[in-house]
């Protein structure tokens, strides 16, 4: 398998990458992927001494595990801030984050490939960063977000990761797994993400609303999953696949 040393785009590199994306959308002439990846004026050495492989990720989980392993020596804070690194990786793995289908590529918005760490509305939409980040924040209860394809951002990931007030609750990922993973189908529960229709106990509308109500009264950050599910009430606890959960001590 080919390997190369991990690199990072500088600000000119990020700008060039954006232009590359635009030229791809327009089928216009421009520098190739390889030219950008190796142009010394656009990249900088990371100094981490890490090699990465030109490999195929079958799922987002594959990518998450790979980056988690390869970037073990880099601090999480550094990875969270590094726009150049994640953007360079997007181009390196471009065939996987933007695959050719029926002879053409569908180039999504720039933030899908160009990492924007300081933009709270975009940071979670970077396909490679969010794979690593989910694995980082929830090493165990992550199948709702990682057992999916790499080149598309699914609704479960979007609706959860865009809400800081959800993701900072330590037990929330276990709660989400217990409520919204359908073990009979071995996949996410259906009908809980419907944009134009509110359904009792759904993830898209009711879960965030209920958490907003509860956070006014309870310190959600210190609760266990059992306690939070009980607080959520029957509307949600009826979905709990561990229905023998221990009641909250009063």
């Amino acid at each position: 398998m080919n390997t190369t040393q991990l690199k990072s785009f500088n600000s000119s590199g990020i700008e060039a990458f954006c232009k590359f994306l635009q030229s791809q959308r327009e089928n216009a002439e421009g520098p190739t992927r390889d030219e950008l990846l190796e142009d010394g004026s656009l990249i900088e050495e990371t100094g981490f001494g890490i090699d990465i492989e030109n490999r195929t990720f079958r799922t987002r989980r594959d990518a998450a595990n790979y980056f988690h392993d390869r970037f073990r020596s880099i601090s999480a804070e550094q990875l969270r801030r590094d726009a150049g690194l994640w953007s360079w990786l997007s181009l390196y793995y471009f065939d996987q984050v933007c695959p050719v289908a029926d002879g053409c590529r569908r180039i999504r918005n720039d933030y899908t490939y160009v990492y924007m760490p300081n933009q709270s509305i975009y940071y979670y939409r970077h396909l490679l960063f969010i794979a690593w980040y989910v694995r980082f924040v929830t090493p165990k209860h992550n199948r709702l977000f990682l057992d999916t394809s790499l080149h598309r951002l699914d609704k479960f990931t979007t609706e959860v990761m865009k809400r800081l007030y959800l993701t900072r609750i330590p037990c929330v990922f276990e709660v989400l797994d217990r409520l919204y993973w359908d073990t009979s189908e071995d996949g996410p529960r259906k009908g809980v993400i419907t944009p134009n229709r509110m359904v009792a106990g759904d993830l898209m509308h009711r879960f965030p609303t209920r958490i907003r109500q509860l956070e006014k009264t309870y310190d959600l950050l210190s609760l266990t999953a059992d306690q939070l599910i009980e607080l959520l009430g029957k509307e949600f606890s009826r979905f709990d696949r561990l229905s023998t959960a221990t009641p909250m001590v009063v």
Binding site: E77, N118, D219, S222
Partner: peptide, 25 residues
């Protein structure tokens, strides 16, 4: 204050009851 980079910093102070109803503000 790791991972906080903005010029504007805001703090919240919370008092939490952990003895009767767990985690109540």
């Amino acid at each position: 204050l790791t991972a906080l980079e903005g010029q504007n910093l805001f703090f919240a102070l919370k008092v939490i009851d952990r003895s009767e109803r767990v985690g109540r503000l």
